[in-house]
Amino acid sequence: MNSDRLLIIGIPALVAVLVHLFFVIVMEGGWTVAAPTVSAKPQVIQASLVSLSKADQTAAKPTSKPKPKPKPKPKPKPKPESVKALEPKPIPRPDPIIPEPVLADDNKTSTENQLARLQKELLDGLMDLPEAEGQALAKEVSEVQQVAALMQARITQNWRRPPSARNGMEVLLEISLVPTGDVVGISVSSSSGSIAFDRSAIAAVERVAQFSEVAVLPISDFERYFRRFPLRFKPEDLRY
């Protein structure tokens, strides 16, 4: 009789609690599914952001030569802030390096050379990082980061900022790739408020058209990180 009581009260109580727990988990999970994929990518992209803004300078500099000197100074300060959260190490390195190639290459204006150097620096910096942190994901992350760094460099090269660009502007694009690296979709997921600025960011991606770098990644990593990923454009180096 006692066991019967237990059955009639215990089972319903258990089921009632389980039903609600399940519902809460499904709801929480359902809502956060988008968040983890996004947060994994911003790491990659944010690193590129920092360099984006710098590289952007590099792109801007060849056209406007008088500016090169004032820029190197303001840059170091804003960059650490944006980079800090993600990877303190790789960013400081590329940053000092980038201004140099820009200045040196200014004369030659051989952007190819510049790009190659930039990529190499970023690669080295990123490859050091996982070892320093020495943890589980190291290899996969380093590969993904290498690719992200290359992509970032390419986008940076192709980005022509409009004159209306200001510090603090930020546009978040959602890029869709296919495994060959072809860009199949670009959409603005969070506008900067300036249409010209948003358009410049879209144009930069369109100009790249194909990110052949992703072809080296295993398909699972591609699906996880690059099938759809957010890309942030944020100039922080401007003086106004």
């Binding site: 009639i8 089972i11 319903p12 089921v15 009632a16 609690v17």
Partner: peptide
């Protein structure tokens, strides 16, 4: 209310 009603639902089903 939801937890209680689920409790009663399952109990009724059994009974």
């Amino acid at each position: 209310a939801s937890v209680a009603s689920w409790f009663m639902i399952v109990q009724r089903v059994i009974i």
